[in-house]
Computed example of a mutant assay.
Amino acid sequence: MHLFYTPDITGDQYDLNTEESKHCIRVLRLQQNDIIQLIDGKGGLYDAKIVQADPKKTSLTIVNCVREYGKRNHYLHIAIAPTKNMERLEWFVEKATEIGIDEITPLICDRSERKEVKFERLNKIITSAVKQSIKAYHPQLNEQVRFKDFIKNSPGQRYIAHCMDGNKLQFSTDLIKHDRYTVLIGPEGDFTPQELESALSNGYQSLTLGTSRLRTETAALEACFELNFLNR
């Protein structure tokens, strides 16, 4: 069934915007009385009937609603240093959304080669992935923030994945299930020793993602997979 993202839905009637109406009628060739699905990004999954098939404003009537559709038993926030090649960050954002993630923050570190990200483009990629994977919850994408500011206000279990020597926790043995998690993933050159020390002093714990040296986006996706798998 065809799925549309409608974050502003409030009642039993809804009009698709011009872009979605055009896609619905001219591309998908849907007609009056056809049933489509809507998601509001806050857990609502709706069945809706087309009552006016207009490519400029398609009108719908809600016929069924499921609340908290696919609600997860944990909350995952990954703060990732933007990659020099934006396509790699976009790939992570897309795949993490498909696997399951709740919040993403671009993290500007001392060794970051990219200091800015295209917020609107990343958010569109998230929306597309939400629709593709039939997620009723839309992950929150935050504006970029500096490392030193971010680590001061992180709830739940806090981890920093890095390549430096020292004792590190493992998700498989040290995880407390069904909780809130914040995981920091550094830039291509890793966090600096000063950043690691600062994170540890703010309640973060060192984390290992295995013995392989992973790219930034791969490490972030590995953390995403591990936490979802262990909370399944």
Rank of each mutant, 00 (worst) to 15 (best):
I9D: 00
I9Y: 00
T10P: 10
G11P: 10
D12P: 09
Q13S: 11
Q13I: 10
Q13F: 06
D15M: 07
D15L: 08
D15T: 13
L16Y: 01
L16S: 04
T18A: 15
T18G: 13
T18C: 10
T18Q: 14
E19L: 03
E20S: 08
K22C: 12
K22E: 09
K22Y: 09
H23D: 02
C24L: 04
I25G: 02
R26G: 11
R26N: 14
V27L: 07
L28I: 15
L28S: 15
R29K: 15
R29P: 12
R29I: 13
Q32S: 07
N33Y: 11
D34Y: 06
D34Q: 06
G41E: 07
G41C: 06
G44P: 00
G44E: 00
L45P: 01
Y46W: 04
D47V: 07
D47P: 15
A48Q: 04
K49W: 05
I50E: 00
I50D: 00
V51D: 15
Q52R: 15
A53R: 03
D54W: 04
T58Y: 00
S59Y: 05
T61E: 05
T61D: 11
V63S: 15
N64W: 13
C65I: 15
V66A: 14
R67S: 12
E68H: 10
Y69D: 10
G70N: 12
K71M: 13
R72D: 07
R72M: 13
N73M: 05
Y75K: 03
Y75C: 03
H77I: 02
H77K: 11
I80Y: 02
A81T: 06
P82Q: 05
P82M: 06
T83K: 01
N85K: 08
M86G: 13
E87M: 10
R88C: 08
R88D: 06
L89S: 10
L89F: 07
L89D: 03
L89Y: 05
E90Q: 13
F92N: 06
K95W: 02
A96W: 09
D102W: 09
D102I: 13
I104L: 09
I104D: 04
T105A: 03
T105D: 01
P106T: 14
I108A: 03
C109Q: 02
D110E: 15
D110Y: 13
R111H: 13
K115T: 11
K115C: 06
V117L: 08
V117G: 15
K118P: 10
F119V: 14
E120L: 09
E120C: 13
E120D: 14
R121I: 08
